[in-house]
Simulated assay, not measured.
Amino acid sequence: MSCTDTLFDEMEVYYRTLDERPDIGWFLQGHIVVEYMLRKRLVDITGSASKKLEKSGFYKVLLEAEKHDVVNKDQKNVLEKINGIRNRYAHELDYTPQLSEWLDIWRSAKAAFCDMTDGIEQGLAELESVDKLEDADRFHLNELFVQICHDLLPNEA
């Protein structure tokens, strides 16, 4: 196989990712917003941004958030699952999540987070109504991150 053939194969994976993967964009956006919210809450609690955390990845920020009671153990577990999918997207360009993986996340999230507007419930119902992940309505699935971010807001006394 020539270098050109190898490059062509790699570019095919890239183009398949762009053309056939609408799930990547909203999922990564949701992950980014959750990480932002965790960092913001840690700054609110500690009074300043930790130099150590500025360069840290999601997992270390999540550990710090659990340490400062921003998230509880069940919420941390859900966010670890979300981060696992994000990592697979980042490191396996041809990764396609399975419906069972997302069902696991939504079911775990339903038990761990408040579902103020029933967004997690609606997303779970959407996932349970389809046979293939690509048939699910993205709007309902995106609500998972909205509900998680609601729980990351500071409690007002």
Rank of each mutant, 00 (worst) to 15 (best):
Leu93Gln: 05
Glu20Trp: 10
Leu153His: 14
Lys67Tyr: 15
Gln75Tyr: 02
Phe27Pro: 00
Asn77Gln: 11
Val61Asp: 01
His140Leu: 12
His68Asp: 04
His68Phe: 13
Thr6Gln: 11
Asp137Trp: 00
Leu144Ile: 10
Glu92Thr: 08
Thr17Val: 10
Glu101Arg: 03
Met116Phe: 12
Tyr15Phe: 09
Val43Gly: 01
Tyr59Leu: 14
Leu144Phe: 03
Arg88Ser: 14
Val70Cys: 08
Glu126Tyr: 03
Leu152Ser: 07
Val78Gly: 02
Ser2Val: 11
Leu127Asp: 07
Gln122Ala: 14
Val33Tyr: 12
Gly123Phe: 06
Phe27Cys: 01
Leu99His: 01
His140Lys: 15
Glu121Leu: 14
Leu103Glu: 09
Gln29His: 04
Leu153Gln: 15
Glu66Lys: 15
Thr17Gly: 14
Asp19Pro: 00
Lys40Met: 01
Ile105Phe: 02
Phe145Asp: 06
Met11His: 07
Glu54Tyr: 08
Thr4Arg: 15
Tyr15Lys: 08
Gly30His: 06
Glu156Pro: 04
Thr4Asp: 12
Ile32Arg: 15
Ala109Cys: 06
Thr96Gly: 10
Phe58Lys: 06
Leu153Asp: 07
Asn77Asp: 14
Arg107Ile: 07
Thr96Asn: 12
Ile105His: 01
Ser2Ala: 13
Lys81Leu: 15
Leu127Tyr: 03
Leu133Pro: 08
Pro154Met: 10
Thr117Tyr: 11
Lys110His: 13
Phe27Gln: 00
Asp151Cys: 13
Val130Trp: 00
Glu156Arg: 14
Leu79Gln: 03
Lys55Asn: 14
Glu10Ser: 09
Thr46Phe: 05
Phe27Arg: 10
Leu141Arg: 00
Ile32Met: 12
Val146Gly: 09
Ile120Ser: 02
Leu38Ser: 03
Cys149Ser: 15
Lys110Asn: 12
Leu42Arg: 07
Leu99Trp: 07
Leu38Gln: 02
Lys55Ser: 13
Gln98Pro: 00
Ser50His: 08
Glu80Trp: 03
Val130Met: 04
Val33Thr: 09
Leu63Pro: 01
Asp137Ser: 12
Val43Asp: 05
Glu134Gln: 13
Asp137Gly: 04
Val70Arg: 03
Leu53Lys: 04
Asp23His: 11
Arg16Trp: 00
Asn87Ala: 05
Val70Glu: 03
Asp74Cys: 05
Lys40Gln: 10
Leu42Ile: 04
Asp19Ile: 11
Trp106Ser: 06
Thr96Pro: 02
Met37Glu: 14
Glu92Ile: 14
Gln147His: 11
Asp137Pro: 00
Glu121Ile: 08
Asp69Tyr: 15
Asn83His: 09
Leu38Val: 05
Val33Gln: 12
Leu124Pro: 05
Lys52Trp: 06
Leu93Arg: 10
Lys60Tyr: 09
Asp44Tyr: 05
Glu12Arg: 12
Leu28His: 06
Lys52His: 08
Val146Ile: 13
Val13Leu: 07
Gly30Ala: 06
Tyr95Lys: 04
Tyr14Lys: 13
Leu124Met: 01
Tyr89Phe: 15
Arg21Asp: 01
Ser108Gly: 12
Val34Ser: 03
Leu42Pro: 03
Val71Leu: 11
Leu28Phe: 01
Asp137Met: 07
Leu28Gln: 13
Arg41Tyr: 05
Glu10Leu: 11
Tyr36Val: 06
Lys40Pro: 00
Gly25Trp: 05
Ser48Val: 10
Pro22Asn: 11
Val71Cys: 08
His150Asp: 11
Asp151Glu: 10
